[in-house]
């Protein structure tokens, strides 16, 4: 097959934000026009997980998708002084990052979409900071997941944390997802900075503050739609169902034949489910 060179419609820019009192240079990709949708990647990866949605001409005709790399991830640098600190992401830092991005970009009632730890933060925002948002798409999301692995495996001087992390998260990828998409999904983990996956998992596997609290979400004001792949072993369908059952008015979609990274591991299977999710945001 002959490939004709062409630019994708995605554009990338850098924005420096004050987060936790420090300057953070953040890389942001976007495409489309209309209703803004701010999209967050999983632990240990970056905004390339969203590239298929940002390249979807039918969707970008009506939606403006904005996909940042969190600080320390992808093309966003860690803040000055990182070389002597231990990266440990917290719920508070993640929430502050999202809220400051929405404000700095001047987004008018964006839809929030996030996967895995980004899905957990969707629930935090829906509970504690719903006002700036139109609704929440919480992908592979639950109230809490304890670790079924030792997070310290992924940051050691005697082994490559990225390669080990990729080999571990492959457990969460459906075997029928296309090989190029499975491997490009794992590549992001292989590339992630030393200790970043471990630092992301710090809050994801330890902060259980949402347990028992999600009944306080008002889905009549901001809808919450939870999506989960049946091959996800980290956030299982049972975990997502348990979580959705505690949120009055929340909706749930179990996606067959897909795992923990649906946007990038199998874009064609994910697409109709994501269109359904966008429609539920009103």
């Amino acid at each position: 097959m002959t490939i004709h060179p062409r630019f994708e419609p995605i554009t990338g820019r850098y924005l420096t934000l004050q987060i936790g009192g420090r300057a953070n240079r953040i890389y942001i990709e976007e495409a489309g026009q209309g209703q803004p949708v701010i999209c967050f990647h999983t632990a240990g990866a970056d905004n390339r997980q969203w590239r298929h949605i940002l390249n979807d001409g039918e969707l970008t005709a009506n939606y403006r998708f904005i996909a940042p790399d969190l600080p320390w991830h992808g093309k966003s640098l860690p803040p000055d002084g990182f070389e002597e600190e231990e990266y440990l992401l917290t719920t508070e830092t993640y929430v502050e990052t999202v809220l400051k991005l929405v404000e700095a970009l001047g987004l008018d009632t964006p839809i929030y979409a996030g996967c895995s730890m980004g899905g957990r933060i969707a629930l935090q925002l829906a509970l504690n900071h719903p006002a700036p948002f139109k609704g929440f798409i919480a992908i592979e999301a639950s109230d809490f997941q304890p670790a079924w692995y030792d997070i310290d495996w992924f940051h050691r001087p005697d082994a490559h944390g990225g390669e080990m992390g990729a080999a571990l998260v492959s457990a969460n990828i459906a075997p029928q997802s296309p090989a190029p998409d499975r491997w490009s999904t794992q590549w992001m983990f292989m590339q992630s900075g030393p200790g970043v996956f471990r630092g992301d998992l710090n809050f994801y596997t330890r902060d259980d503050s949402l347990v028992g609290q999600l009944g306080g979400i008002d889905t009549s004001q901001t809808p919450v739609h939870i999506m989960v792949g049946d091959y996800d072993m980290t956030c299982t369908p049972e975990d997502a169902e348990r979580t959705a059952a505690t949120i009055p008015g929340a909706t749930l979609a179990v996606m067959k034949g897909i795992g923990h990274f649906p946007m990038s591991e199998n874009p064609a299977t994910f697409r109709p489910h994501f269109i359904e999710a966008l429609a539920k945001m009103g």
């Binding site: 079924w148 692995y149 492959s170 457990a171 459906a174 075997p175 029928q176 091959y231 072993m233």
Partner: peptide
Amino acid sequence: IPEPRFHDIF
């Protein structure tokens, strides 16, 4: 094509 939960040694 192994079913979910049986697709990986973990």
